[in-house]
Design a protein around this nucleic acid. Structure first.
Lengths: 222, 222
DNA sequence: ACGTGTGAAGTCTTTCACAGCG
DNA sequence: CGCTGTGAAAGACTTCACACGT
């Protein structure tokens, strides 16, 4: 068990998976050692930030050398508890839910979708890979029984709050929320929102409508 | 055209779509006016933050009353350029790309997927709704010709950088990146990354592996 | 009395810059 | 000599708290 201080900023924790991703890639090139500068390049961050972030957890680097790729990756994986297998419940078996259930990327990283629930009678009983969609009314009991802590919410906006309440009551502590609405949860539950439309809507702020007119092969440098 | 100062923090811009979402919901209840406090409740923010955020764009509120829901929504939509229709290119017609292409939520908000490209010969020519998957080699020219500024990247990690380079050269200024890798772009291009696995990986930091053992209906309040 | 808009204060995060180790 | 780890400074963002308009 790591004896890290319990005061690490959330922003830092959010960046660790990005570092992890980059380290896996670097490891694949057989490179043994990586400097904060190289990692910064690979992650779109800065060398100072990477050194500061890693220093929260202790000295992983060697002066003049950098960080041992394999060792750093192992450390980050331990910090993030990625050596566990995390069983996950998925709520919502609409097109998004189905895409999530079929996507191999979660299981590959230890997030195994164990159960899928839906409210809609037409979807209950449906098979997705080796899972059968169950009635959402059975959710609370099964989640509690199986000690599942992680949920992926893929229901329409209108249903999200009620499901989130039920999940929290059933003991879930981490929710990946695909519903385009804000959900209220107790303090000991963490939510990460994914809203691609909202993301695009904030990107268009930086686009001037007039830019849309700038057609053709014009090479004006703004 | 709004004469807002050009110094508005990115975090603020990221929150505007959330306010917009909440306002649409409130508008549906026929409520005419909303206070910073109510909006805070609805968005999981705080009243002070909402007042501060909105104050960057001028005084939308009335003392003692709050904000006119309809007027505030219209203002935010104008700030974010949401009254435009934004044609979008989608790169990657794998399962994620297909899900994106079929998802109605983008078009509903003015982001119309105009073209889909893929590298894989097996996918080129495939129909998705009313679109036909085209060869990615035709992408640059078509994007430029049609003045498309917004792209959704749904290719494997290994292909993302090359595609991003081509998109930037073709004039794209906003990229929604679903590829689980960091992409490097020129300063005048904005990227928003969506990586659900990375999101889960940062959530599990807050979960103690021992918690997974806490099964049954135990009501310990930790 | 209610609720906005905003200086000022407080907190959090990033960046600088360098001592010190390998 | 190269590169980490980290005080200290700078900068960004949030929150407080209240004057003021309605």
């Amino acid at each position: 068990m790591l004896d890290a201080p319990n005061n690490i900023p959330d922003v830092v924790i959010k960046r660790l998976p990005i570092y992890s991703r980059a380290l896996v890639q670097i490891l694949a090139t057989r490179q043994r050692t990586v400097s904060s500068n190289e990692l910064a390049m690979a992650t779109g961050s800065t060398a100072a930030q990477i050194r500061r972030d890693l220093s929260y957890f202790g000295g992983f680097g060697k002066q003049g050398k950098g960080y041992d790729v394999e060792r750093l990756l192992a450390a980050i994986r331990e910090i993030l508890n990625l050596n566990e297998q995390w069983p996950v419940v998925l709520i919502g078996a609409g097109s998004l839910g189905q895409a999530v259930a079929r996507y191999g990327g979660f299981a590959e990283q230890g997030f195994v979708v164990r159960r899928v629930f839906d409210h809609n009678v037409d979807r209950i009983g449906m098979r997705i890979n080796d899972l059968v969609v169950q009635d959402v009314r059975e959710m609370a009991e099964l989640v509690r029984q199986e000690g599942i802590l992680v949920a992926i919410l893929a229901v329409p906006a209108g249903a999200a709050q009620k499901v989130a309440d039920d999940l929290a009551k059933a003991g879930v502590k981490a929710i990946l929320n695909y519903a385009p609405s804000t959900i209220q949860v107790p303090d000991d539950v963490r939510v990460h929102d994914i809203d691609p439309v909202a993301a695009l809507q904030s990107l268009t702020y930086y686009l001037t409508p007039s830019e849309a007119q700038a057609r053709g092969v014009s090479h004006r440098v703004s």
